[in-house]
Each structure stands twice: as C-alpha cells, then as structure tokens.
Design a protein around this nucleic acid. Sequence first.
DNA 1: ACAGTTTCCCGTAAATGC
DNA 2: TGCATTTACGGGAAACTG
Lengths: 419, 419
Amino acid sequence: EKQPCMPTHLQKPLIIKTGVQFTTKVRLLVKLPEVDYQLKVKTTFDKDLPPGRVSRQFFILTNNTKVMDIEDYSNGCLSVEFRHLQLKEKKYINGTKGSEGLLSVTEELHSLSFEACFTVQGLTIDLETCSLPLVVISNVSQLPGGWASVMWYNLLTDEPRNLAFFGNPPRANWSQLSEVLSWQFSTFAGRGLNKEQLAMLGEKLFGQHASCSDYQVSWSKFSKENIPGKPFSFWMWLDSILELIKKHLLPVWNENYIMGFVSKEMERALLKDKEAGTFLLRFSESHLGGITFTWVEYSENGDAKFNSVEPYTKNRLSALPFADIIRDYKVISDGVVPENPLKFLYPNIPKDEAFGRLYNSQPSKVYPYISSTLIPISELRPNASTTPPSCQSPQPPMTPGEFDVLCFDLSDMNSPYSE
Amino acid sequence: EKQPCMPTHLQKPLIIKTGVQFTTKVRLLVKLPEVDYQLKVKTTFDKDLPPGRVSRQFFILTNNTKVMDIEDYSNGCLSVEFRHLQLKEKKYINGTKGSEGLLSVTEELHSLSFEACFTVQGLTIDLETCSLPLVVISNVSQLPGGWASVMWYNLLTDEPRNLAFFGNPPRANWSQLSEVLSWQFSTFAGRGLNKEQLAMLGEKLFGQHASCSDYQVSWSKFSKENIPGKPFSFWMWLDSILELIKKHLLPVWNENYIMGFVSKEMERALLKDKEAGTFLLRFSESHLGGITFTWVEYSENGDAKFNSVEPYTKNRLSALPFADIIRDYKVISDGVVPENPLKFLYPNIPKDEAFGRLYNSQPSKVYPYISSTLIPISELRPNASTTPPSCQSPQPPMTPGEFDVLCFDLSDMNSPYSE
DNA sequence: ACAGTTTCCCGTAAATGC
DNA sequence: TGCATTTACGGGAAACTG
C-alpha cells in the first residue's frame, strides 16, 4: 500500500554540506479529493538504505515535518517547502563504519525521502517519494569532487536513484564529456569552450591521439588519478580554472580574450611570426588555478623568443585585477627603463583596444596622500632561457553545445551547491 | 552552609564568543580529608544573576559536570578542567529582553559558577565559587569592544566580580591608562609605546593640553564616542593599529622602525632640514588600520616638501609585505624613470641598513616562467599639493612600564580570547 | 606516518532585531 | 529607518582517525 506519489523524471544528484542549511520542496501532483484536513509531510535522510551500504550516515538536525499548503502562485496543488534543513553526521554507529570503504566521500550517493499519509473514504493511503541522489560533503574543499560526481552521474545514467552508481562507474565518450565540460564553462563562467580548447583538453586526457571523439574516459582518469607528473587530477585542474574565472576573470573570459587551453607547443606555433609584442593568455598546466601571458619578441638575428610570466593565482589577482596587470606589466632588463612588452592580443588586437574597457578606473584621490597602486614587474637578468618542444593547431571560438537540463518534477532541491 | 571555597584575588574579565569552545579549570585549594569518593563539580553560566539584570542570557551547550581529579604535576590537590565548553544564547526568555538596554553587549559582564558538594563525617558541605567577570560576544568583530571593557575593568577596580561595573564606569587617569595602552603593545606586539608616542595619543584624547598626566578620560571617550570628525572611537582606532602590527608589521615594529604615533605637524618638524629622502613611518589617523610613510624633499629654492603615500591597510599588506613596499616603492613623475624616494629612515639610517634583514628573499625561480612581483608605485602629476599646520616635539624610545598581571588562583579561564 | 576527512573558527557579508 | 547585534558560511588550517 506504500506507493510512490509520482514517477519522477531524470534527477540530478546535488551536493549538501553538513552544517549548512538547505531547502527542499515537495509538490503533490495528484489532486486529492476533499482536502479539508492537514496533510503532514515528513522528510528523512537515507531512509531506505540497508545499513552498511554507505560508510557514513547522516540525519536531519532540524525540524523535519511540515504541513502541506496550497501553492499560492500556481494551479492550486499542494506543496511544502522545508527550509533551514541541516545535515549532521551520525557518529559511532555501532562500532565502526559501513563496508564500502572503496568509495570516497564524494562518490557516496544519498537521498532524501518524503512521506505523507492520509485517509480518504475510510482508505488509508501512504504516499512516499524520494529525492534525487545527493553527495554529502563536510567542507567546501570537497566541492570539486562533488561536482565531478554530479557531472558523471548526469552524463552517464538516466536511472533516477542508482545510489550504487560509483561502485562501478561507466566510461564516458569524449564527445559527450567535452560537451558537458563546455557546458560547465558556459553555465558558470558565461562562455563555453571552443573546438580548439576542447581539443587541447582531449589531448591532455588521451595524449597526442587527440581528435578521436569516440575515445573513452574512465571515471578514475577524469577525477581520481593524478595527471602524470602532476599532483592533481584532470578535473581538479579544470575546476580550479573554472573557479579562477568565476572569481577573477569573468569579464576577460566573456570577451573571449582568454585562449586559455592551449599547449605550449601550439602557443609558440601561433605566436611565431606575429608582430613583436603579440601575446596570448593561457592557463597554467603545472599549477592549480593559474593564468599566464606569453608574448613573442625577436632577437637581432630574427629568432623568435617566447616569454611567459609566472602564473597569476587567486591571491595575486585579488590584489590586482587581471586587466590592470596586463595594462601595467613591465619588464626591466638590466636597469633600462621599464617597458610593457604586451602590445597586441593575439592575433593582432592592440592591447588597449581589447582591454581598455576592462581596466579599473584609476585610484581615487585620497587627499592629502599621494595615491599608490601596485604594478607587476619582472626583472630580467641576461641569463634566463626557455625550452621549445613540438607543435599543433587551434582557431577562433564556437558556441558551446546545449546541455540537456531536465526538471525535477516532484521534489525540488536547493542547497547553496545545487546550481 | 553554602560557602565560597576560597577568597579569590583580583580577577580579570575575559571574553567568550558564543559557539566557540573554551576551557576553564577549577582547583580546590583546601585539602579534603579522606577523599576516596568522587567529587563532582558543576559549572553554570550566570547562575546567581537576578533575572533582568543582564539583557542577554546564555547557557552552556555542552556537558557541564565533571569529576575532580588529583592534579598530576602539582602538589596533589584536586582540580578539574572543563574543555570544549560552549555558550549559546537563550532566545525569547519570557517575552522580551532584560532591562539594561543602556549597556552595549561588550559592557555586559557575566560569570561562570562552579559548585561541588561532599559529605565528610556526616556533615554535608557545599562548595561554590564563581569565576572572573566575562564578556560574551557573538562575532569577532566585537572583540575590540570586549578588550576595551577588559582593560577598563582591570585598570579601575579591584573588585572581583562587580558585574554592574559598566553601569557607571569610573574615569581613568591618563597616567594609568597610558601605561595600560603601552602594555597592550608590549604584550601583543612585542614592543611598548614610548613617551612621545604616548604624548601623541594623549593629545588625541585631550587636545593640545597634552602633557598633563593627571587628565582623566571617561569610558565613553575612550571607547564609545567617536573621535570628532571620525567614524570611530579612540580605542577602535588604536586597536585597529594593534591588529595591523600583529598581522603585518611585527618585525618592523619590534625593530623600532615605526614611529607610528606622531602628528602630521610633528612629522614635518622632524623631517624639516633632514637630508632629502629622509622618511618616517606613521599610522593613519583618518582610516582604521593604515600605515603610511612620509618623506621630505626640497625644491630648487630650498623649500621643504613633504609627501605621504596613501596608507597601506591589511589588504595591501597581505599582497606585499611592508618591508618590500619600502624597498620597492617608486615614484614616476611625468614619464621620468621611476625612482625610490625613500633613502634614510629618520633620523638618518640608510634604508637598506635598517630594512635589509626584513626584505623578503627574492622570488623563487619558477622555470620556465619569468618570475614576477608586485611593486607599489605612485604616478605624480604636477598639480598635487599638501597642507601644513602647527607643531610639537618627540624623541627616542623608552621601555614600556610593566603592567601588573595577577594570577587567578581558584579557577583559571582559557578561551581563544583570554590572552 | 600519512592521507582522506572532519572540525574549528576567523572574517566578511547578509540577515535580523530593536 | 538606521544601528547594533547575530547568523551564515567560505576558506584556510588544525585536528582527527583510521
């Protein structure tokens, strides 16, 4: 006699942080006859999990029952919104933790259940439904891992609540995955990734075999294994860049001035033979969340020389916005007057024409003080060098594909991390 | 038959933040005969307060009883340490809040009580004692206000628990107060304030009448009223500087390179006739937690010209350490090659001699990148000016007086804010 | 010892209360 | 409405815990 209130469509797992409030809403899609009594809904965390299935157990710290109400703004159906819900971990549940120690916390999927019971014409009916899969984290530092799970789940299954998904996660085709990655950028940074940028990402995952859009990526390779020679996984690296854009590079990114994902080889191929002082902007591949610029100049004998500045990370960028860095960057070679080597944004846009609108208005007058600003400089000693390796080929931007976002009909989650 | 376990000596109020753990320890100074049973101590917050006396009420969220133990490292007396105590505010206690709405939260004094009961030879004895006065805050932004209360209480009363102290707080003699202020700096920043620095502070409080060491300062003038023309009180200003020193200027302050508290008039009097490029370091009087440098230069006709840079605040200083700012500061006047105008720390110490040891080691090589650093610059347009007013006279440093710190015998508090 | 995970708590921002 | 105070929670770091 327990029966799901409604079949639900494709549901996305979302992320909840313990100790941080979230909101969830349940809507009754069937019209009940004669609803003149109160319909109480109770929400429970991980209600139906066989114990031991997940290694961590949580409970709802706050009030978890509420009476349904007629939705004011809609067609009069019943709904209830739980606010200020908060999750807390159950500690020391009979000795030790559950079995699946193989999964990391962000691979562990959970769910919220909703129950209601009512009697109509002498017949008692139990309604029950269950939310989308959820990832529970305890610190925002786990958010990137949580997002990786969300993406992988959405991409690779239509099952509404396969909580064991990460026990044996399927591989993704690069053609699908690259679309999702581009969608991340268009959703959170306002502009997706173009063909060349995606090609570079594919190359990072597969090596030089690139192009092949039906290569497959394993979950592990995507977000768990470190990139060879680096102390972080592919997704951790990519997400650090997404964060950098969101917090410090939004206008520059949206103007499409950041080529960003381009190999060092490609970079050289592009800049070679461009006018001296032509530069492009590229994300660091060696450090998390860094952006650098590379410019070309020519020695007396005509040899191209490529210089890249030490990547700027969030700390530096919060001291000085990136456009201002580009405007003010100076190189001092051997006591000569400092000069800004950045003249043309690749392929040939005069710097101020590209970035002019993005420069910060100059320091306010703070009478009686002399205003002061920070400027980024490099001092060149005549004994540095850089290495040159192989090559490849990119081009202009393309519109990111649309990612199919489906709605969650019956219950609607809202945590700070839900979108 | 309730009797205080021990008279206690001078006790200092300390600061507890709601929701943040603190520790307190009670020691039984009388030796009990035949202690073969467990002596349980219970701690209560604001136990004896007549309701309505304070406007906010709090309770101990965590376990508040514990059994006394023989202190291992000492002479075998009984003691108990409560850890992980946490305070939470009682909400909506019978309608509205208490009466004393006149006091701000940091003026409201509270206390912790400790009770124990034991039976010896058929005689039941209740022991009870009560902690030092306490200030309860809910956000670290209230910490400066809390410290002001702690200082005023310690300075002006010997009463162990006059919780009504701020109902009518006495005035302080400047001679006492200045000693306490200096002690704040020597305790938290490693170096106290000298005679000249204190004179400048006195002047700020009293105006030009200064010198008079028996001037009195009211509690309100010290920490509640704003300085005329400024949006902050004297103590808020001073504390912002203390914080700036603690976080960003410790070595420079301890080397005594920051004159800091010096009026603009005095500054000019000092720098006048010093060699061009002589500078001194001074805290901003117009903004909270700022430090600036002022240097002297001379025009062709020999007139002294004084320049002060826009004060550096914690944000700037966390992007670039202050010593490096001094090392790298450059002024660009009308396209001429940038020059560092700072040559000699007042009175005549060559800059690098003074600050050399404090400079950050130069940027690490980040092959294959060109390392980069931020430098502070000012661009001078030939239309700025500065104002000159009156004068006075400072000199070299003096050792700060010792502040009489008395121990708390019976119970010992420990919160992150207790010292 | 160590890595994965959680807790702690400052500091900013937003919300709340008076 | 404005100011005083509290709550919220990201982010860095420490503590925990197998």
